[in-house]
Design a protein around this nucleic acid. Structure first.
Length: 424
RNA sequence: GGAGGAAUACCCAAGUCCGGCUGAAGGGAUCAGUCUUGAAAACUGACAGGGCGUUUAUAGCGCCGCGGGGGUUCGAAUCCCUCUUCCUCCGCCA
């Protein structure tokens, strides 16, 4: 979340920056007014409390000396009532401010281009050559059904729409990619591997920014506890350090985590209904970093390179874009999307997203570090990126490596994991 | 699922029955110093942090803080309610 202290210094600047995302943020001014009232009340209440503490101490002294304290006690009797009245108002104001801060997205960074839709994203690089075919490339859902490695019909029997059964070498391809990506990041790129819980509490969802605004996107566990299915490894892994002061020598912390992610896709009805591009359940290998503020953009670019490496090794053509303000995620200051070429779509599709939240999530999650033993704690910067979405990588391999006879050649780096060089 | 027990500062731990000189004893670890060529030992000293408010201020002062939240009271680590986590035993289970 944003810092109310900084907002009150310059509210119009925050309103202007937030408006770049689209929407009305004029309520910020009201928050600043409420914050002023909040501080007034605190000053008053604390004066009264100081008096009460002092007087109570006197009562204690008198009683210990077996003296009569009833007169002094009468004097303070009503102090509690007075405090309570102030605290009712204070609580109301604080809840208002806190809720609005939770509902307010991050301000876009300087390098985030202003725009409304993904059409305003800026392409910064293309890599790999788009393959040409002497036949009409077919979409992955047909390839998968023909090869009997993806089973959509039976998946809907078991679970419903937007679920898929992987079968035979299809299942092995998914598993091979999970291992290939995890090995690359954990062993080659030196990220510490994490295997987190997939069921997550509400505090964690609030800390990374999913809640309260996007509660509809999560699968809720039917249980008296407030528990939800993991929507992305970003949530459990950032929350590893919630309410912690990280020893400065540990920074930067780099984690990689394979998780299965679950999403309602509530706002995507009718989009990508065929195939496995958009599923309620999908696998992802994620990269997460905690850094000092001054290093976060350097680490962001390194993270982008680590993600790109997956596609380079798989020899898949892709491009990188910078998301514009209208496409930027709620908690993020700056985001790169990696988009892979899909022949049957004749376009690039998102396969990974690499973002810097700066201190936005750290402030929500209360994650700090101290430069020295006596220094004041500062918020870390949090970064997260895909490394990559596994299901979409399966799609990219199937489509880009398809042959005229309907078979799929396995990329060389995956052969040790697949124990075969072709799916037929 | 059943029956008990516990949560105090970096760690261990006293205090909780019987509320007030406990804003938290004591020990360990750590840091600094004395001694030493250096180190160890011994001795001396420091050692609650974090948030909030006020403020030019990482100075002062104040408020909060003994697992979290709430309550009783002039006053709560101590009493009451509630939640969470951990431990022991029984049952069940991959």
């Amino acid at each position: 979340m944003l810092d109310i202290k900084m907002i009150r210094e310059n509210p119009q600047m925050f309103v202007e920056l937030l408006s770049r995302r689209g929407g009305d943020f004029s309520y910020i001014y009201d928050m600043v007014d409420k914050d002023k009232r909040r501080r007034e009340i605190i000053s008053q209440v604390e004066k009264i409390k100081a008096l009460r503490n002092e007087t109570s101490k006197q009562i204690g002294l008198l009683k210990r000396e077996k003296k009569d304290a009833s007169e002094v006690m009468k004097k303070v009797e009503n102090i509690g009532v007075e405090i309570k009245a102030f605290e009712v108002e204070l609580k109301e104001i604080e809840e208002y401010i806190h809720y609005n801060l939770l509902m307010t997205p991050n301000i876009p960074g300087k390098e985030t281009p202003i725009g409304d839709t993904e059409d305003d994203n800026i392409e910064i690089k293309q890599e790999g050559t788009i393959p040409t075919y002497d036949f009409e490339p077919i979409p992955h859902w047909d390839l998968g059904t023909n090869l009997d490695i993806l089973d959509f019909e039976r998946a809907s029997k078991i679970s419903g729409s937007r679920f898929t059964v992987y079968k035979g070498l299809g299942a092995r391809l998914e598993r091979a990619l999970i291992n290939f990506m995890s090995d690359l990041h954990a062993i080659e790129h030196k990220y510490t591997e994490i295997l987190p819980p997939y069921i997550i509490n509400k505090d964690s969802m609030i800390a990374t920014g999913q809640f309260p605004k996007f509660e509809d996107d999560a699968f809720k566990v039917l249980d008296e506890r407030d528990l939800y299915l993991n929507p992305t490894a970003e949530v459990p892994v950032i929350n590893l350090h919630r309410n912690e002061i990280i020893p400065v020598e540990q920074l930067p912390i780099r984690y990689t985590a394979f998780t299965t992610a679950f999403r309602q896709e509530a706002g995507s009805a009718g989009r990508d209904t065929r195939g496995i591009i958009r599923q309620h359940q999908f696998n992802k290998v994620e990269l997460i970093k905690f850094t000092k503020p001054e290093n976060s953009y350097k680490e962001l670019d390194l993270m982008l390179k680590d993600s790109e490496k997956v596609l380079q090794l798989l020899k898949l053509p892709y491009r990188v874009v910078i998301l514009c303000t209208g496409d930027l995620g709620f908690s993020m200051r700056k985001t790169y999307d990696i988009e892979v070429w899909l022949p049957s779509f004749r376009t690039y599709r998102e396969i990974g997203s690499i973002s810097n939240a700066e201190d936005y999530q750290a402030r929500r999650a209360n994650i700090k570090f101290k430069r020295t033993k006596d220094a004041k704690p500062e918020f870390v910067h949090t970064l997260n990126g895909s490394g990559l979405a596994v299901g979409r990588t399966v799609v990219a391999i199937m489509e880009n490596y398809q042959q005229k006879d309907g078979t799929i050649v396995i990329p060389e780096v995956l052969i040790p994991y697949m124990k075969t060089d072709i799916i037929k």
